[in-house]
């Protein structure tokens, strides 16, 4: 591997993405190009001056951090270059194209602005398709190798028992309960709302755990 592109929105010297970029570059003898993405939104004219000041300060901070990271990488024999850019659609796309070709993209925690989402880049997967190279979400990768927490297991079991009770006790008696629920009136309407809300919460809290067990949901 020759070239890694690192996309980072968080202005910190030791983010997960930077750590991974270092390790992979060290292993494969690759160089690293880092784009610090500075969010900015120019939608409200009244705030332009304030936003320009804030963006300017963030760009300077990113450049200071980039300088320090560059020093540390080059101490370990890894070529490192960086740029701080505004996270706006045209600028972002222009910088991505100028950075090509790369062999791997490592993304830190990116909050994709809605403008970029409108370019069809709403997710990491979209970025990989557009750039035609693998893209790794660094934090997602870190989370996917963490063990499943006991708290998740407890939640699954507790709500699972509640769900089982709702289906196997409540449901068989529904014909009798329907005499009240389908009798009409405000009380019946309110009772239906409460029943479905409780059931959805209990059963939904059980099923919510399933994608986490197979690492599809990393939140």
């Amino acid at each position: 591997m020759k070239r890694i592109l690192l996309l980072e929105q968080k202005l910190d010297e030791s983010t997960t993405a930077i750590q991974y970029a270092y390790r992979i570059a060290k292993r494969d003898g690759a160089e690293v190009l880092c784009l610090f993405l500075i969010p900015s939104s120019m939608t409200t004219a009244d705030w332009i001056e304030t936003q320009e000041r804030v963006v300017g300060e963030d760009i300077k901070k990113a450049e200071r951090i980039g300088m320090r990271i560059k020093q540390r990488f080059e101490d370990e024999g890894i070529r490192f270059s960086y740029r701080a850019i505004r996270f706006q659609p045209t600028i972002f796309m222009k910088e991505l194209e100028a950075s090509m070709p790369v062999d791997l993209v490592i993304a830190g925690r990116l909050t994709s602005p809605v403008e970029v989402a409108d370019l069809g880049l709403g997710s990491i997967g979209d970025l990989g398709v557009r750039l035609n190279c693998p893209v790794i979400d660094a934090e997602a990768m870190q989370k996917s190798f963490e063990p499943i927490s006991p708290r998740l297991w407890r939640r699954f079991i507790l709500y699972g028992i509640g769900s089982a009770l709702m289906y196997f006790v409540f449901f068989p008696n529904i014909k009798h309960l329907n005499k009240f629920y389908m009798g009409g009136g405000i009380l019946a309407g309110l009772a239906i709302m409460v029943t479905v809300a409780v059931h959805a919460w209990v059963y939904g809290s059980t099923t919510e755990c399933l994608p986490k067990f197979i690492r599809m949901d990393k939140d």
Partner: peptide, 24 residues
């Protein structure tokens, strides 16, 4: 749900069976 429940049109069997699949 409240409005249709007031009119007596909600059969919770249908709703609970839908939930069994939809919340997965």
């Amino acid at each position: 749900a409240f409005n249709y429940g007031v009119e007596g049109y909600v059969d919770l069997r249908l709703t609970l069976l839908l939930y069994a699949g939809s919340l997965v």
